[in-house]
Each structure stands twice: as C-alpha cells, then as structure tokens.
Write a protein that binds this DNA or RNA. Structure first.
Lengths: 334, 334
DNA sequence: TTGTAGGCGTTATCAT
DNA sequence: ATGATAACGCCTACAA
C-alpha cells in the first residue's frame, strides 16, 4: 500500500488536516510543526494521490495541449516549455490532438468533457476556430491561445508575425532586391494573413509592387513550396531575385526547386523562410529565417493557466522574434 | 454543478451501480436497462469524473510517455500512435521528459511517484537505463520499452535495427560500391550498436573490409555527421564511394559536407540515412533511408499497457522496417 | 439482473 | 494553530 496522508499524520503526531496544510503551503501552521511534517513526509517518500486530491478539490492538476497537425518541431517546443511550467507547480501535461473537423462536430466536445483538465493550451490553427472556443467556454475550461489570432477575447500568447515578415522583406530590399516573390501559407491559418500583410506593407513602403505572379498560394508544406517555386522560376527570362516563403518547409521546397533548375542560391536567388525549424540549419545553404521563442510561449501559456486565479496576469503576452541571417540570402546581383 | 452518476441514475430510474455497470460495459445488465441508461447519459451529456473513478478503482486512466531528447518527428509519431490507442479505451497520454541524469538521482523517482499513472511507455535512450527500470518496478508501474534494447526482460516493442542496417549496406554493395563509409550514432544508444553490427555483418558477408578511417563515431546530430563526413572526404585521393550514416540528421550532414566540397551526390558519392524523418524528403537529393513504423510502435506500446491484465499479450513485438530508395544513392562509378 | 453500504485519499467546513 | 468530520464521485463487495 502506498503511504497516505494519514501515515504521515500519525508518524508526525498531528492530524491529517495539518499535514494537508503544510503540503499546500497554507498559512496558520507553526514553523516547528511544518518542519516536522516536511521531514516525515520526505522520509516516508510520501506524495499525494492526484486522484484523491482532484476529487476533493475539484482540480485535476492536469493541463491539456490541444493541437492539430502541428509541425513536429513546433509541437515539441511548445511541449517542452509547457512542461517546464507544469513541473514547477505539480501539474502535468495531457496531449490532445484534434482535427478542425472534430471541433465542429459533437466529438470535440465529448473529448473535452472526458478529459477533466484544469485548463487548455490551444495552438496554431485551433485558436481560430470559434466552435472550439465556444465548446471550451461552455464546458468552463479556461484556455490560452498560442499564436497569431484575430479574436481579441481571452488570454493569448503571441508573436507579431506581421512585423517579423515586414522586417524580413525590408532586409531583402536593403540587400538590393527589387523583384521579390512571396509564397503564402495555408489560408486557414491566421498566420498566413499576417505574414502576407507584412510582405505587402514592406513592399509598399519601399515603393515596390509585386505582380500577381510573384505571390503564390502555398499551404505550409514542403511540396507546396516546391510547386510554387517551380512556377515562379520556370521562365528564365523573368525570375525574382529573392523568394520569401512563409515558413521553413516551403523555403526548403524553394531550395529544392532551385537545385533542380540549377539556380545558384544565394548567388542568383536569395531564399528565406520563417520559424527557424531544425531544417533551417540542415539545408544547404543554411536558411535565413525568423526565429520565434516557441518554447517560451509554451511556458508562458501554461503559467497563465496555472496562476489564473492567483495573480491577475495581463491576458495577452507578445513575444519578440529574431531575424536569423544565414547563407541563403545575399546582396542582389552578386 | 456537473452531472454525476447519481443524476443519471435518478433520471433513468435505476441505482447508480447499474449506471456504473453500463458505463463500464460490465455484464449482467438487461438490454432494455442498458439502452435506457445510455440514452439518459447521452442526453445529460454525462461523462464520468476521472478523479473519482481513479480514486475508487485505483486506476488513473493515464499513461505516461517517458522520453529524453528524442527527435521531434520521432516523438510526435510515437505520440500519435499512443494517443490513438488511448482514445479508444478512454485513456489519456501524459508527457514526461526525463534526462538520463535524473534517472540516476532521486529526482526521476519523485517525478514518477507524483504522476500516478497506470503505465509508462519508455522510448529510445531511456529503455536502456537500468536505474529507471528499477524505479518503475519498485513503484509498481508497468512499462513497455520502445526501441532496440538488450535486456530481454519486460514488454517491448522493437524493430530489427541490425537487420535493417545489414540490408541497407547490402543494397549499396549490390550497386557496386566497395569502399563504404559508416557514421555511427551516439554510443549511449543501443541502436548505435545494432546498426553498426549490421554494417559490419554486411561488409564481412561480401568479403569487404572497412578501414578504421571508414568508420567514424558521430552522435546522431547533424553537426556530427557534417564533421565525420568532412574527415572522411577531405583527402580527394582516397574517398569512399558511399557513406551510410546511422540516422537522417547525420546523413544530412554528409550531404552538406559534400556540397561544401563540391562532390556530386549521388554521382560521385552515394549517401543514405536511417529513420525516414521528414528531412529525408526535403533534402536534395532526397535521401535513401530506412523507414520504421514508429507510429504503429507507439500504438502497440499503449495497447499492451492498457490490456495488460486482460489478454496475455506476448511480451515483445517486432515490427518490420522498409528500405526507402530515393535519389541520394546510385550505382557506383556512374 | 439489480441494489446497498462502505471506502478510496484528499480537501473544505466548522469547531476548538 | 490545530483537529474532527463531512463531502467529493465513483467502484468493489456483498446482498437480494
């Protein structure tokens, strides 16, 4: 039998309520008592039973990470951050993948209901689904959205995608590029809109104009980047000197297309991506890209959920990005 | 207030025990009763309180995924599989990263004790840590190891790394390669030994011998592959015609080194990897590699844990691998 | 086939 | 500052 709070109480010569107080850092316990209890608990390798605690306090000490089709590196980073925060507070992270389709059927709500969590972290494409947000509200599950989003309601942890895209394009322009292509992401993601807006703004700011054939719709996959780049590069007489892909996977597609067409990168074509995923360093040349502090965002999201009733955190946190300049971009016409 | 089992019982005009029976699919319930209860439960959006259920039955319906420093794509695949199995049975997946260092201190055991799970999935490097296995045994937490491992005790889900490596090298030899380099993985991983053994066996089988400068120690990172390849390729008068890296990240390093040294792949150098991670398709040329059914392995591991007392699963499952031939390998001397 | 009583280990309430 | 006792919601054991 596992040691219980009663064992500790007996051994320490106090009531179980006192032990409970000590373990939960409640006030009104004599210092000496507190220390004695701690010692006994340690010695007995006592740790509270989550289920019992949950039943009595109607808290589960569980936080769910809701995601859909997230890229592996993004997902693991969010997880890492969230878990750090959870560990510090005795919480645990539950994984709950969920498709957009599910959020509109009864299914998502069933899944949510079943999980009995104290809060949920909503990542990437899921934050923008009103159906899901409504479900969570209806079930009274607090949530924090991670990633760019339009709705300003609710807690959120974000990065300024638009400004990051703006700066990246400005960097290309400063390198002398005038004919710049843009490969947009999945239209269902809010980030797609923001990154596109950043591109547009920077071009306009510089008095440049990208023709319609210079902006191609992708969907954040490698293949879509490859196809988009092929189209943009197929005519040797009219090629952009730089292509900005809205994420690294698509930028990898651009590099691949350039390889196939024998276009030297960065000499004849500068390429840049977004996200600074591990592949950015693995490609040749290494990718100029935007680094998001994903790990910190995951951490912050969990912290907000855990402390939601204690401190009154400002609902929204915006993190800084960083332009990572690598070998895939160079001065135009080198 | 959330609806409880008592609400359902009242509404259906039966005792709560009967409701409990229906919900747990226990026998000895009249068909009509069962249907009525189901209907009421549905209608009331009832779902059992995990904590209460756990407290009463001393099962938590939680399974932990223990991992250390796993590659993102490996991790997400395992997760996907495990969650599929969990969902079907009303279980949830808890994420618990854990460093090798922690497993040897008290810390790992504290973490394990705190989590109150019904079972644990042990991935990659963790399976080989006796300290961790002992802790789990001591805490009476059933576990399934995923990945190659030496100790034959306990349930395990694995793939024959050695045979896969053997076949890959055999494939290179069949292409006419005689001078083949091998980049080994992190010496702390069991897979490293197995893949190396496969390489050795295939070479010996073909009457070939790899000089000591043809086998270089890496550590499964891109950078280590890059460094190893540089060393292996620095002397233009004595270069292997093929390099087999023990994982895709290191193979990416080899490609990168070849790029820097202006060695054409696959014309002058064939390169292959192991794992079939997403980067295998993103690199140029695309990587010949070994695909592991990681997703199924995760699924199976969870299934074993969940059904451990019902069926008597054979303790160990071995999955098939698949050689994926892509553009990075070609006939020698093309 | 169905129901009743008791307890799982913790926190909350109210005394002392 | 500390303690007794009653929830919390479900399952197990045993009855009926």
């Amino acid at each position: 039998m596992r040691t219980t709070i009663t064992d500790v109480a007996k051994q320490a010569g106090v009531s179980m309520k006192t032990v409970s107080r000590v373990l939960n850092n409640e006030p009104n316990v004599a210092k000496a008592t507190r220390e004695r209890v701690m010692e006994v608990a340690d010695q007995l390798d006592y740790s509270p039973n989550l289920a019992a605690r949950g039943l009595a306090s109607s808290r589960s000490y569980l936080i769910a990470l809701l995601y859909d089709n997230a890229s592996p590196s993004y997902l693991t980073n969010i997880q890492r951050g969230a878990i750090e925060a959870c560990r510090q507070q005795g919480y645990h992270l539950l994984l709950e993948p969920m498709t957009a389709a599910q959020t509109e059927s009864e299914e998502a709500e069933r899944i949510l209901r079943r999980m009995n969590v104290d809060g949920a972290i909503l990542t990437a494409p899921l934050c923008d689904l009103t159906a899901l947000r409504n479900s969570l509200t209806r079930l009274d599950i607090p949530y924090v959205a991670v990633g760019p989003q339009d709705a300003d309601e609710g807690a959120a942890v974000r990065m300024d995608d638009q400004d990051a895209a703006f700066q990246m394009v400005k960097y290309l322009i400063d390198l002398g590029h005038r004919d710049i292509g843009f490969i947009a992401g999945d239209p269902d993601h809010a980030s797609t809109r923001h990154r596109r807006a950043g591109f547009d703004a920077a071009m306009q700011d510089a008095g440049l104009h990208a023709g319609t054939d210079r902006v191609v719709q992708g969907d954040y996959t490698f293949r879509s980047g490859l196809e988009a780049a092929k189209r943009m590069l197929e005519d040797p007489t009219s090629r952009p000197t730089a292509i900005f892909a809205a994420n690294d996977d698509m930028a990898a597609g651009v590099l691949s297309a350039a390889n196939r067409l024998n276009i030297a990168v960065p000499d004849a074509l500068s390429v840049c991506g977004f996200d600074d995923t591990p592949i950015a360093r693995i490609l040749w040349p290494q990718l100029t890209t935007v680094a998001q502090p994903i790990h910190q965002m995951g951490r912050k999201a969990a912290e907000i959920l855990i402390s939601r009733d204690k401190r009154r955190d400002p609902a929204t946190h915006t993190f800084d990005y960083e332009l990572i300049i690598r070998g895939s971009t160079a001065r135009a016409g080198t």
